[in-house]
Lab assay of single mutants.
Amino acid sequence: NKFNKEMRNAYWEILLLPNLNEQQKRAFIRSLYDDPSQSANLLAEAKKLNDAQA
């Protein structure tokens, strides 16, 4: 399933972002589970926040 693969990839990438705190990571991951079809958008948002907090 395409969404499962995308979601899994986004999950691990979000977990490994160094500048997000645990609460932020949990919020993004919760959103991933709520709507896996938004994986790419959520990952992009997480990366943007990660860069902003660098």
Rank of each mutant, 00 (worst) to 15 (best):
K2G: 14
F3Y: 07
F3M: 04
K5S: 02
K5Q: 14
K5L: 01
K5R: 02
E6M: 02
E6Y: 02
E6G: 01
E6A: 03
M7N: 02
R8M: 14
N9F: 11
N9P: 02
N9H: 09
N9D: 12
A10N: 04
A10H: 04
A10L: 05
A10K: 03
A10S: 04
Y11I: 15
Y11G: 02
Y11M: 06
W12N: 15
E13R: 14
I14D: 00
I14P: 00
I14N: 00
I14F: 02
I14M: 09
L15G: 03
L16I: 05
L16D: 10
L16E: 07
L17H: 09
L17K: 03
L17N: 02
L17Q: 12
P18I: 07
P18H: 07
P18W: 02
N19K: 06
N19A: 05
L20G: 00
L20S: 00
L20Y: 00
L20F: 02
E22T: 11
E22Y: 08
Q23A: 08
Q23R: 06
Q23E: 15
Q23W: 14
Q23P: 09
Q23D: 07
Q23L: 12
K25W: 02
K25R: 07
R26S: 04
R26I: 09
R26Y: 07
A27G: 12
F28Q: 01
F28M: 09
F28W: 07
F28R: 01
I29V: 11
I29T: 14
I29L: 05
I29A: 04
R30D: 06
R30W: 12
S31T: 09
L32A: 02
L32D: 00
L32P: 00
Y33K: 04
Y33Q: 02
D34L: 04
D34Y: 09
D35E: 08
P36L: 03
P36V: 04
P36S: 08
S37F: 12
Q38D: 05
Q38S: 11
Q38W: 10
S39L: 13
S39I: 02
N41K: 13
N41T: 13
N41F: 07
L42E: 02
L42T: 12
L42Y: 09
L42D: 01
L43R: 12
L43D: 00
A44G: 11
A44I: 11
A44E: 12
A44R: 12
E45L: 07
A46F: 01
A46Q: 00
A46Y: 02
A46H: 00
K47F: 09
K47S: 06
K47M: 04
K48I: 10
K48Q: 14
K48L: 15
K48P: 00
L49W: 12
D51P: 02
A52Q: 07
A54W: 11
